[in-house]
Design a protein around this nucleic acid. Structure first.
Length: 325
DNA sequence: TTGTGTTTTATTGCCTCC
DNA sequence: GGAGGCAATAAAACACAA
């Protein structure tokens, strides 16, 4: 026994003797409940008499003696006295009705005040100690179930976040490849015709410098229009890629400046030195919630998220499992 | 029937609160 | 210091497949 606690339900020899005394003394039924149930001299099981009381309350039918028969003297017989002292008490399951009654009570309130405990014990024909134990075990079961539910819920939100992250990752790779593609095109044009932007500007500013024949002129107009269209298309394409509706939008001056034409390197080699640390953080945070994922620069994209151990909940979050109710 | 896994009842030891 | 709660655990009762 812990801390000198006295349990009425303890199947000791002394209490077995008390069982006999209680069950053979009907007048005990009129004793105050506290004395009857809580004192060290009370019986661990009140048995048939109290059970019938519960049955009378519940349905008026006979009790299921195979389920709830705390101490059946008929089984042991009159010569079973020695057996009481030498056989440990068997556990008895509560009757279905009793469990149902306790369940209903638990639904109302899962804590058990002393008065309620006494009342329940009285109605069910159990010891208050048994009722207390039942509530204690029931609370433990409820807690386990609740933890399972919460685990499922967390698992679902984790899966959802993971899917979002992976989709963002794919989109980022897609954009990276597009940027690489455009870089390649730009380099080729620079090699072929020098500064494309400058050439185009010159051409637009001096349209009449080189007289052309009608056919050549119209051809030149068509060519110019084609080039202009191509140019507009590329610029709008680059913008639309970056401002894709599903992508994080950078509306601050720093990031939108990356999209400004006029510098052939504007898209391909953004000057990261212009970014303050805060801005870099914001850029990362726009893609990855800080509580869930590491910064972009910390991620090894060649590895699946699991292998980088980046998806685990922070250690401090595990305090969630420290339950209280 | 028996072996095995699960559920239920009960105990123990520790902790907190009053 | 006693009462009561909880976690861990034991052990009986039960379910069920082989």
């Amino acid at each position: 026994m812990a801390g000198g606690r006295v349990y009425g339900g303890a199947p000791s020899n002394t209490s077995n003797l008390s069982i006999l005394l209680q069950n053979q003394t009907p007048s005990c039924a009129s004793e105050p409940l506290d004395t009857l149930f809580l004192s060290g001299s009370s019986s661990p099981f009140l048995g048939t008499r109290s059970m019938m009381s519960f049955e009378d309350i519940q349905r008026g039918k006979g009790c299921n003696r195979s389920l709830f028969r705390p101490f059946d003297h008929d089984d042991n017989g009159d010569d079973g006295m020695d057996e009481y002292f030498h056989q440990p008490e068997k556990k008895r399951r509560l009757a279905a009705d009793q469990v149902h009654f306790l369940e209903k009570s638990f639904e109302v309130e899962n804590k058990l005040e002393p008065e309620r405990k006494i009342q329940l014990a009285k109605e069910l024909g159990l010891q208050p100690r048994q009722v207390a134990i039942w509530f204690q075990n029931r609370r433990a079961r409820w807690k386990t179930k609740q933890m399972e539910k919460d685990f499922d819920s967390l698992q679902a939100s984790y899966d959802s976040l993971k899917a979002d992250y992976e989709s963002l990752l794919k989109e980022k790779e897609k954009l990276k490849s597009k940027v690489a593609n455009l870089t390649e095109k730009g380099l080729i044009r620079e090699k072929q015709g020098g500064n494309f932007e400058q050439a185009e500007t010159n051409r637009l500013q001096e349209p009449q410098q080189k007289p052309l024949s009608d056919s050549a002129a119209s051809e030149g107009e068509g060519s110019k229009a084609a080039i202009e269209a191509c140019k507009q298309e590329e610029i709008s394409s680059a913008k639309s890629d970056i401002f894709d509706s599903d992508s994080p939008h950078y509306t601050d001056g720093v990031h939108s400046a990356l999209l400004e034409p006029g510098d052939s390197s504007y898209v391909f080699e953004p000057d990261q030195s212009d970014l303050s640390q805060d801005e870099e953080d914001n850029l990362s945070n726009a893609l990855l919630p800080p509580y869930m994922f590491p910064k972009l620069e910390d991620v090894n994209y060649s590895d699946p998220p699991e292998s980088s151990c980046s998806f685990g909940f922070p250690v401090e979050d595990q305090a969630f499992w420290s339950w209280s109710y």
